[in-house]
């Protein structure tokens, strides 16, 4: 395959960025999208030009480190992570625009690399169960109905990649936050801190510069793990109950 890439290049957090056009010939449809960028980077290096910076680590769709806006779609045209996207999803001769996640809360560090530590700070605010090492009761002491365990697992599949924020016109982080609130809220172990968790996480989310949810649904559509929109309903319900002291 022969492709035209328009890639966002930006030297540093405060530098001005621009889209730069590259031609990449001889791409195999079996390559992953990031392997295609590896090929480009090898070529740039050989030409004495600095390679394009982008994040990736596990390259098997679970660490959440990679994430590119590909021709306007977070993680590209398939429902998967950028690292699991293969070139067979594109057409020969296609022009592909590659940009970083764009959100106030995710500043660009260089080229396609952004700072997503705002997500870590939301977790710090309350995305945990306080259980010091050694203080745990026996695992079988508390039964968890399979239905709840399965729903908790579904929500806990979130990989924290940030595609939901990048896809949302409001750059809202509510799918990410809703997933965590649902994961912990489905479990008996998560009940004692449920009210303060949701309140603290929402406060941090807003302070970090993420927008609010207006029920558009782009987040869930872009989510490589298919986290459903109803975790946001759960988040809102928990928040209302927490504020009115009913949780």
């Amino acid at each position: 395959m022969n492709l035209t890439l328009k890639i966002w290049r930006q030297d540093g957090p405060t530098a001005r960025g621009e889209l730069v056009t590259y031609q990449v010939p001889d791409i195999s449809p079996d390559m992953s999208f990031l392997e295609m960028l590896d090929v480009l980077n090898e070529r740039l290096n050989a030409e004495g030009k600095e390679p394009v910076a982008f994040d990736s680590d596990c390259r098997e769709g679970i660490c959440g480190m990679c994430g590119l806006m590909i021709s306007g779609d977070a993680h590209g045209p398939e429902k998967t992570t950028t690292c699991q996207l293969h070139m067979r999803s594109f057409k020969d001769g296609e022009t592909i625009t590659i940009e970083p996640w764009r959100a106030t809360a995710f500043p660009v560090l260089r080229d396609l690399v952004v700072d997503r530590t705002a997500f870590d700070r939301i977790i710090q605010a309350g995305g945990f169960i306080s259980a010091n090492t050694g203080a745990a009761p026996k695992a079988e002491a508390i039964l968890v109905p399979k239905e709840n365990a399965d729903r908790a697992f579904m929500a806990a599949e979130c990989i924290g990649c940030g595609a939901c924020v990048a896809a949302c016109p409001n750059a809202s982080g509510m799918l990410f936050m809703g997933a965590k609130v649902t994961h912990l809220g489905e479990l008996p172990q998560g009940q004692p801190e449920r009210a303060q968790r949701v309140a603290a996480m929402v406060a941090t989310h807003d302070a970090e510069g993420f927008g609010g949810c207006t029920n558009i649904g782009e987040c869930s559509h872009a989510c490589p793990k298919g986290i459903p929109l109803d975790v946001i309903s759960q988040l809102n319900a928990d928040m209302r109950k927490a504020k009115s002291g009913r949780l």
Binding site: A131, T133, A139, L143, K146, A149, H183, L184
Partner: peptide, 22 residues
């Protein structure tokens, strides 16, 4: 065995049987 206890307490959603056991 302590590891499983610790992880369950933290909210790790291990697979469960219909009766709610691990």
């Amino acid at each position: 065995a302590n590891i499983i206890d610790q992880c369950v307490a933290q909210g790790v959603p291990f697979a469960r049987e219909y009766g709610g056991l691990l």
